[in-house]
Design a protein around this nucleic acid. Structure first.
Lengths: 343, 343
DNA sequence: CTGAAAGCGCTAACAA
DNA sequence: TTGTTAGCGCTTTCAG
């Protein structure tokens, strides 16, 4: 006759431990812990009591393997320091809160190889769905997403060919409309200041749309200036100084984001340049972080939180309603004229 | 005689599929895909080829269950919009990059109930380790962490009683030293402006340390102003206006973070207040986002990226070297005097 | 309302 | 170098 060796005390607890402590079968314990099926109030309480007393934390790995269900939603974004993405994430978290689904974040640093690695890693956890920033992916990444067999939502941008669903704004259109507004306000010698990152496709599309908008009025960009890295506010300052030295006759500066725009604005105020009389300014994103500046920079709201919410809603909706086709949600950004464009 | 029904074509691929496609046992396929054990170059290539052709993505759920190893590190932070935390996360990602470990983020919104929920959720995936912001947790949360059986690193703050390891700065000391620097520069009527959030323990500790520092010189805070929510830059402006209206004789304003400090600075410059001659200003965090302001705000670097890195290194180190006791890493923040304190 | 048996997809340990 | 066997901790399914 043998006795079982005493279990390792540092071994994580299992359903069996709760079962033994409560004198109820593992199956019934499992039911109680998941609120599934009918369990008598008596046993229910006995089980809950035992689980709490032991400090049992269920093993979702085993649960997921057995049930073939994982309450994770993968979210892949290029950067956390961009100010834009935390807000998207926040919209996603908020929308998912009530659904029992949990977002899991991955960051690519605007790097396609990293993106592939992150996607592979995430998909290997068999998430309920994936939310991925942007429409531009390597062939391998697209293939992975296509074969994943779960709802995919590409976000931020709608100008392109989505794998499945897409939620975002048209950055081309955003650039176009900003150009029209600027032209309409009477500006003619217009410069562009933006990021150098070759993989920031959305900034590129805004610039394309912007140039198209100028072309409608027979205009072309008078000058451009690009940067990469560093404090955006400071870069905005430096770039503005540089472009104005080179092209002193510019009457408008269009910045690819609000942070560099704010730097430019501060520079102009420092130098006593008449804004928006002699020089108009506009950015992009509508970050309310900047609301306390001496003047409100003209900008365009990118609907960041709403994008996160809608994307999450698609995943949540589909995960309970079975499969539906790819949806397309195009949000409409609104221009905020602020105080840096002439009326 | 029966034939197996054809497999559901949308069913995710398994090791078995790769095994059949390559004519190699599942076990060997598994070895190849994990680079474990010796496999002949011939079979290795055959397997890799088959896996790629099929688009096989391994199922980590099953793998983790079988191997009892999970390459996930849980990271729990209070907020993403705080500017501080993205940088910590970035330090963590960076340090983990080479180790095969993957960070998974969870956000608590400075809410203890949410924290419990997030911790429970994460621990149920049996991660390799946990990084948690702050030392203040509910009893239930502490118990969960204590019983998790994996390395826990609490970050940001060292003033308190850690569950296991801790990496951070002393916020008490940070406040204390800033007070000393201010007093030494000759300021005497000092006001404090900060967040109202009752759960921002670190801000509270800085304030305590700050008051202790003033007390050393026989001083007390002349006035205080608190806020919650909204654009920090704007709030900084508004609060500064309010406190100066109420207490026009203040000669220094200590802000609990750089963003509201920047708002205050912009307000003072607008109003033509002599900074730092008549009024000194200081913030906290050292966010280089603000480098482009007209003057550099005095501040104190909170070592955010370094904190993330060190915490991640502890998890990574312990996961391969077996268990070690709780480590304590206290980083030393450095004052940056900027242009808003008299020399 | 409760329990017993089978197996999710993979890997540890051992055998060949 | 490769294959076989058992089982990770849970849930599904079916039987009581």
């Amino acid at each position: 006759m043998t006795t079982k060796p005493p279990a390792d005390p540092r071994r994580p607890l299992t359903l069996r431990d709760v079962s033994e402590a409560s004198g109820v079968s593992e199956m019934t314990v499992s039911r109680v812990l998941r609120n599934r099926g009918d369990v008598s109030e008596t046993t229910r309480e006995r089980v809950l009591e035992a689980a709490r007393a032991l400090g049992y934390v269920p093993n979702k790995i085993a649960g997921a393997l057995a049930s073939q269900r994982v309450n994770l939603v993968g979210v892949v974004i290029p950067s956390l320091s961009n100010l834009v993405f935390p807000e998207v994430l926040s919209g996603i978290s908020q929308e998912l809160e009530e659904t029992g689904l949990q977002p899991v974040f991955g960051v690519t640093d605007y790097n396609q190889e990293r993106e592939e690695a992150v996607l592979y890693e995430m998909l290997s956890w068999r998430p309920t769905g994936m939310i991925v920033a942007g429409l531009e992916h390597s062939d391998a990444a697209r293939a992975m997403l296509q074969n994943a067999g779960v709802p995919i939502v590409e976000i931020m941008d709608v100008d392109g060919d989505p794998v499945d669903s897409v939620v975002g704004i048209s950055h081309k259109r955003a650039g176009l409309e900003m150009a029209r507004a600027i032209v309409k306000a009477g500006y003619r010698k217009i410069g562009f200041l933006g990021t150098k990152m070759p993989h920031d496709h959305r900034a590129r599309k805004r610039l394309e749309g912007f140039e198209a908008g100028l072309a409608e009025a027979g205009l072309t960009l008078a000058d451009k200036e690009f940067y990469s890295g560093g404090s955006a506010l400071l870069k905005g300052r430096e770039m503005t100084e540089a472009i104005l030295k080179r092209s002193p006759d510019l009457d408008f500066l269009y910045y690819s984001n609000d942070m560099i725009g704010a730097g430019g604005l501060l520079y102009c105020l420092d130098k006593g340049i008449d804004v928006p009389g002699k020089l108009g300014l506009a950015g992009f994103n509508g970050v309310d972080l900047l609301d306390g500046l001496p003047r409100r920079l003209a900008t365009m709201d990118a609907c960041r939180r709403e994008i996160g919410r809608r994307a999450a809603a698609i995943i949540a909706g589909r995960s309970e309603s079975g499969l539906v086709g790819g949806e397309r949600v195009e949000l409409t950004p609104t221009i905020q004229m602020g105080d840096t464009i002439r009326k």
